[in-house]
Amino acid sequence: MNEDDLLKRSAEEREKIFKRYEQGRDGAQIDPWEDPGFEVYHATDRYGFIHDKRLPSKVDPQETKKVQIEIERQRKWLKMIKNWDSTNTKEKLASRVYKGIPNSLRSDVWCKLLQIEIIKKENKGKYAEMMKLARKYSTDARQIDSDVNRQFREHLHYRERYSIKQLSLFNVLTAYAMYNSEVGYCQGMSGLAGVLLMYMDEEDAFWAVHVLLTDPKYAMHGLYKEGFPKLTRFLAHHDRILMKLLPKVKKHFDRHGLDAILYSLKWFFVCFIERMERG
């Protein structure tokens, strides 16, 4: 097969994949096994994740306490959001973030923390432009398609193949791969964008991904680009800290050939997704 044929075939494949998402669930050919059969109303937790088993009918007293604390925190956060630029907010913000941003306010707070409004205003029309480019030239559509098909399928919004959320995730990732061509698309980014999309609309999530990758404060760009330079640095740093603070543990790990990458990759790479509760 020559170069032209290969290009033609990949263009056809891209066309097919994009069309399937645009069409959505109507008229799509979905194998019955592709859509999980969950009892939605009995088993969805408050974050939208669907569980195999029914949630316990009796409320766990600890859970009740947690919810109460969260309501209390919500009150404080609402006050803080109203006075976002005040010195009081600046003083308390960091410690309150560490205690956890209440679920109901994450949309607001994440957008504020990442300063989405500013960057969106400065780049009007950019997202739509990138989506158009992706539609024409994306070389990552196949990989993204196969990852969207596997990302958070136990979540209410991602559960159904070609659902609206799956379309959003596909759009954000293909558009971003065009916008940041050095990174393109790297497996793991679907988890990052997938979480953002649980709390934001498409365009906001697109810019949130961009801020997380390029703002010096987060700089995740180096984690995902070819060769993973920042991941390598983080792992080396982790090893040094472990050696300094827990030398016996480190030596034990070394003796058994337990490289840090085997257990810590997801901490750095996907911000603890699948390694910690979302609460």
């Binding site: 859509d35 999980p36 399928r153 497996q187 990759l265 997801k266 699948e274």
Partner: peptide, 10 residues
């Protein structure tokens, strides 16, 4: 099942 996630790392 169709519930497998993309494997990150290993």
């Amino acid at each position: 099942t169709n519930q497998y996630k993309a494997t990150i790392g290993a």
